[in-house]
Amino acid sequence: MNIIFYLAAAVAIVATLLVVTRLNAVHALLYLIVSLLAVAVVFYTLGAPFVAALEVIIYAGAIMVLFVFVIMMLNLGPQATETERGWAEPELWFGPALLCGVLLGEVIYLILRMPTGTTLARVGTPEQVGVALYGPYLLGVELASLLLLAGLVGAYHLGRRAPHEEPGGGV
């Protein structure tokens, strides 16, 4: 089982690396789906099958479909890739890479320094998750529902097309 965890983790990292470097948005999106599926496998190996399913259904399914819709609505032609190539200057990448490298180094250092332990080979079943959600985390669930409602209203408001709006005006 451990080997599956490491394989999936490697796939997730490689796929994510490809996401970061792609110039075409649709390509990047497909690699991200691969990455998410790999992470779902990781979840499964870590004893969280319910979450793994959600990762596939909601993340790799619903949310990524949203991205696909938007990219389709924007109707970016082949020149979009060229624009993206023009933006991908090495010096633009240098600063963020350095910063993130330092951050990653610090994180790795801190993780390796902490007391070790292994994951338990125990499965957190959907039933347990549901009991926890509607038990101690009930307030969190309510807040999440409120957040989703706000997201719904916000997306509707921002997404509607106002025909008489001047470019650059307020929403």
Partner: peptide, 16 residues
């Protein structure tokens, strides 16, 4: 189920 060191899982998270 896998019994990997938890540090590895966290390292995966950090790299991502």
């Amino acid at each position: 189920m896998a019994t990997v060191p938890v540090a590895h899982g966290l390292l995966l998270a950090g790299v991502l």
